[in-house]
Write a protein that binds this DNA or RNA. Structure first.
Lengths: 337, 337
DNA sequence: ATTAGCACTTAAGACCACGGAGTGCCAGGA
DNA sequence: TCCTGGCACTCCGTGGTCTTAAGTGCTAAT
């Protein structure tokens, strides 16, 4: 049904529409692209494409515009990811290289991604559950307060104050500290619960209340509370975009971190590029946007996701290239830390 | 020159224009407000107000619109801060009361402020230099790495890893830890440099390289690097605003944390409400917005600023009331922690 | 299967007329 | 001296008509 030329026509329509933002007609198309056939022929192909639902015309006598389904076919079969230019790669390198800690890596990444794609960038903080414990510290703050600090191999530090304890002797804290480090050192965070479950029985009976308090806070901070933060950048680029939905709707959706995290999480294979187009996005506010995302992490272990949000009418090859490149660079920077 | 009635006219113009977003004419004004004079009289007053630069008409035969100077007079002399309703105060209380740590207090505050004012809210993290040291911890991470954690009385935690040391014995770290706590406990952060300047001479000669490394990182993290973070909220409200400038310009300016911090910092008396109207803002991107800000802190010690950004055509009394109330509540919550 | 030609549709722009809201000014009245 | 009613004027916004340009669908010929 869809021979090669029809596909070529679809590709040309997508490319033209993305760059001009105007419905593309048969004549203009035959002129600009070297398809070697007349406008009339292209028109015939167009009605076929329209019947299949890949393109529509906004009104009778207007050119054609790709549908979500058309973009989907385009990214799946008609385009290849565009690698970055050497200059762009150098820019990434120097820009990300200067970061000193995790916060700054994330902040710079989001700026970079927004700048490269001229769209809204989203970067998720590396997830706790995918990293491992490097060190646990317990610090007595007073007779009844203890601070717990957990350091992970991705450079993340979580700290909590444990309050309302009975009088705790310093050496009990010290014992517990040593025990925790012995048991947890190098453990995946999601294995922490199993590792500590019988830990209270290993301390002297007098110290068990302390141990239980510390463990419950530990579990809460590491496991139950997936406080996966996300950072946004490039929202100014929204002003230049034109959604069929209202700008307000998109801005509102972008403010809901929970939504963003779910959206990134929905992506398929975590180490691959994922593209969700228009109505494929489950959240109402993103029905007229496309989201290109990728996992990033150390080695082939994906720690978190990053991506960009733009109009469905976006430069998919270029955007996908930028997202993929940035994800890889961030991974290598994290590994080098 | 400006008698009472002219001022009343200006006040009426501002109030009408703020609520209708349309230039207000003499007839409509005489009808709605009980000024007790005829439209013709109001017209005469209007030309006077226009000659003084408080109002302008967008074109002949249109109503009048307040200028920046008009708004300024309005907030300075013609309006009073509107206290929140009891329901609003209760809402603040329950909403902010549920926060468990500093991050969450800030996050909730920004949401609250955006919701109350229906504008863009900005909250600055409590400044380091205004708080005091509660505890310093040094944790050996390996033979050549030490982690330093500083906890302040505002609940903020700063941590740094000190790297590339010579072999450091554990007891040297422990000694230094005790010394630091003895010297710094309760100190204002901005007094820390003075307090530690002669500290290397108080440790055994062998440990001085370690002490110097730790101190230089300490100084860097606390003093030189005023990494005062700001958090934004309610950007979706931008969509409903109409600036004379482009939306993009405002969004861009809002993304520059440095600009926001400077802007908040420019405010006058830190414990008072500050209003900057239109061109009074030094930054280009905010020329068509007004910024209402206030300091907040524990007791009468101002730790940081918060505020909202909206169109010059904003409800000043209501906005000022909300900003002031939120600033006070946040202060009391911080004090209670 | 492709192409050229042609009649048809539609949105967008130009032009115009007109009603409404608002103004400035002037002369008369308290 | 200040206020008011009246009046002519200005300008914006709206709605109507017309025209143009772009693009389509269809048919007949290649």
């Amino acid at each position: 049904m869809l021979n090669d030329r029809k596909l070529a026509v679809l590709r040309a329509i997508v490319e033209d529409y993305v760059s001009t933002n105007e419905p593309v007609g048969s004549k203009a198309l035959a002129g600009r692209h070297g398809l070697g056939v007349s406008p009339a022929t292209i028109r015939n192909d167009m009605v076929a494409l329209e019947e299949e639902g890949y393109i529509i015309q906004p009104h009778t006598s207007a050119g054609r515009v790709p549908t979500d389904k058309g973009y989907r076919l385009f990214v799946d079969r008609l385009s290849t990811v565009k690698p970055l230019s050497a200059a762009e790669r150098r820019a990434i390198d120097t820009f990300l290289g200067g970061a000193v800690d995790l916060d700054e890596i994330v902040a710079r990444t989001v700026r970079l991604l927004a700048q490269l794609t001229r769209q809204v960038a989203i970067v998720q903080y590396p997830s706790l559950t995918r990293s491992s414990v490097q060190h646990v510290e317990l610090v007595p703050l007073g007779p009844q307060r203890v601070m717990m600090v957990v350091i992970t191999d991705t450079g993340r530090v979580e700290q909590r104050v444990i309050d309302g304890l009975d009088e705790v002797p310093e050496e009990a804290v010290e014992n517990l500290r040593q025990l925790l480090n012995r048991v947890l050192d190098g453990k995946w965070l999601n294995n922490v619960p199993d590792a500590v479950v019988d830990l209270p029985s290993q301390v002297p009976p007098d110290d068990r209340p302390l141990a239980r308090s510390v463990l419950s806070v530990l579990m809460e901070s590491l496991v139950e509370r997936h406080d996966e933060k996300v950072v946004l950048g490039g929202t100014a680029n929204l002003a230049a975009m034109d959604f069929s939905a209202s700008l307000r709707e998109v801005l509102e959706a972008l403010e809901e971190n929970v939504v963003l995290i779910r959206l990134l999480g929905e992506a398929g294979n975590p180490s691959m590029l994922t593209v969700r187009i228009g109505a494929e996005n489950s959240h109402e506010g993103f029905r007229s946007t496309s989201i290109v995302s990728a996992g990033y992490g150390i080695g082939d272990q994906s720690l978190a996701k990053l991506g960009v949000v733009g109009p469905t009418r976006m430069d998919y090859p270029g955007t996908m290239g930028a997202v993929r490149a940035v994800a890889r660079y961030v991974g290598s920077i994290l590994a080098g830390q």
